[in-house]
């Protein structure tokens, strides 16, 4: 990962919102286990009420709304990051059991467990000795 990738990047591909806010791409880790895909997304400033996970066919969209990051009665004198909403879309190749998707948000991190549909799970085939 290059140095610059540590900072938030603006999502320019996403359709614009009516509200005049910037939209950022949350950084994600994705790993796969035998039964499920796990997606972990960094979205500082969101909580369980302001995050949305949508799944349409095999398109997964995660989005989060962030209140303006202003500090009351103070004025900004130095800035390294901007505050805005988050949105990112993924095309999933595995068939996901959408009834069993689980999502949690803790300290600005969204965790998604996307269980694979029963028929997609690799099955071990027993081989009988001849």
């Amino acid at each position: 990962m290059s140095e610059k990738d540590l900072q938030k990047t603006e999502n320019t591909a996403v359709t614009e919102k009516i509200r005049n806010v910037k939209i950022f791409v949350p950084h994600v880790d994705i790993y796969e286990t035998r039964d499920a895909l796990f997606l972990i997304a960094d979205m500082p400033g969101v909580d369980d009420k302001s995050v949305d996970v949508e799944m349409e066919k095999n398109i997964l969209t995660i989005s989060g709304r962030v209140e303006n990051g202003r500090v009351k009665d103070y004025s900004l004198v130095f800035s390294e990051y901007e505050v805005g909403d988050y949105e990112r879309t993924f095309t999933l190749s595995n068939e996901i059991d959408r009834e069993k998707i689980r999502a949690t948000v803790k300290q600005g991190v969204l965790r998604l467990e996307l269980p694979k549909a029963e028929k997609e799970k690799p099955k071990k085939i027993a081989i009988n000795a001849a």
């Binding site: 979205m43 004198v77 600005g108």
Partner: peptide
């Protein structure tokens, strides 16, 4: 990354550090 906010008698430092 941080943002720094100022008032007469104090500073506020905010830092985005998720998780």
């Amino acid at each position: 990354a941080i943002n720094v906010w100022e008032k007469d008698d104090s500073l506020v430092v905010t830092m985005e550090w998720p998780g």
